[in-house]
Design a protein around this nucleic acid. Structure first.
Lengths: 225, 225
DNA sequence: TAGATTGTTAATCGATTAACAATC
DNA sequence: TAGATTGTTAATCGATTAACAATC
């Protein structure tokens, strides 16, 4: 990695790396903080190639010691800083249905850089109530509040049909990132970060592999036609 | 693609392809079934490279007509067959907490090849009740019922601490695939399909990009040090 | 026929894996 | 010192993108 990139932090990090780093973090938290750990160890523990672990870890900018590895404490902190977990970003959740409620109850998001500060719902019966300790506000307040409070993250847990509309309100409120749980492709300005959590797409991967497995069972691949 | 592979269906399909096919399917469902559609059109609509769409579509085994494209109806069916959405697989959901309840309420999974037939929970107060029309059964019945009913899919929505234990019960019951929502790496025999839906890992990607974006705002990349 | 699109092969790009010198 | 591990460069692998002939 070029050192200029390292210093500015302006590097495009591969998605797979971004998804593995939290895994390392989770494993490291089980270890004594003052201990040293090697990429070999992490890889062995998680069933990953040690070289891959090293590459991933390199992105955090940490410098290790040959033969020794990294101090668990330092590596944990490096990952946290790199993933932006050290400074908490506030989030609004829109759609206090059952999925929304589940997320509001997650609780541990605060350890991962995000704090859900309020929920919004179109159902006026829900407005004013609390879900897992979070107040449900009226949709009418979303844009204005997001703008005034500078809330950077919007979480969409509304039905697909109204997701685009909600996304537009979030953009209007100046939100920087959208975590979208509705099964639709959102159309937003390209400087807005969108992360789709489309369970139907995820299920598809599982479903296809299962179907292939069943197929193989009936008709093993080594059998000629 | 070699034709032998095409006929047997024993091809390793790239994950990205598997995640895009449902997107095409969703778009196609909005179109008149008797109409024709080209990969160019699909790509333009979803903001994807048309060649990539063609490659993905090729995996389903469908044959198109130059200049015309594919009949929407045929392509929809080809995707459904390929992803295994045409024959419904049964699933047990374990952990009737708020996330479990949200999934039980999803409803549309049946259109995507999976039918949740029952839920299980360790809390005896929940046993016997219904969540979104699904009966909650006792954990003690899980292994035996999975085995006798040949339920191939297990959904884990229990706390991280007990997820491994639940996974082992699912394996013991002969389950083929596990959709894991608990934030832990499961240790199961390698012939069991595992799909992790780790929200903390997902959040990490969003969080890191947001942190980088904030950083760029403060200190634009074209500024020399 | 002309032009658009499929099907297929080749080139590019990026991520993973391998190799190896530097180092503690 | 010997051996393990880092840091770094090269090779491999797989997915994306480009090119182009076949075809309707």
């Amino acid at each position: 990695m070029a050192s200029a990139e390292k210093r500015t932090g302006n590097v495009v990090v591969p998605e797979p790396t971004l998804r593995r780093l939290p895994l390392y973090h989770r494993f490291l938290k089980l270890l004594p903080m003052e201990q040293a750990v090697s990429c070999t160890r992490i890889g062995a523990e998680l069933g990953l190639d040690p070289t891959q672990v090293r590459k991933d870890v390199e992105f955090t900018g940490i410098v290790g010691r040959p033969k020794v590895g990294y101090l668990v404490f330092d590596l944990v902190k490096a990952i946290e800083r790199f993933l932006g977990w050290d400074n908490l970003s506030e989030a609004f959740l829109v759609g206090a249905g059952s999925l929304g409620a589940a997320l509001l109850g997650y609780g541990k998001f605060e350890a991962y850089g995000m704090k859900i500060v309020a929920a919004f719902d179109a159902d006026e019966h829900k407005v004013g109530t609390q879900v897992h300790g979070k107040l449900v506000l009226s949709m009418g307040e979303l844009v204005d509040l997001a703008e005034r409070m500078h809330v950077p993250i919007g979480i969409i847990t509304v039905p697909a049909a109204v997701a685009q509309e909600v996304a537009e309100m979030m953009v209007a409120g100046g939100m920087q990132a959208i975590w979208n749980f509705a099964p639709v492709q959102l159309n937003v300005p390209k400087d807005v970060i969108v992360r789709n959590e489309d369970l139907y797409c995820s299920l598809a991967a599982l479903s296809q592999k299962l179907a292939q497995k069943e197929l193989r069972k009936e008709r093993p691949s080594y059998v000629a036609e």
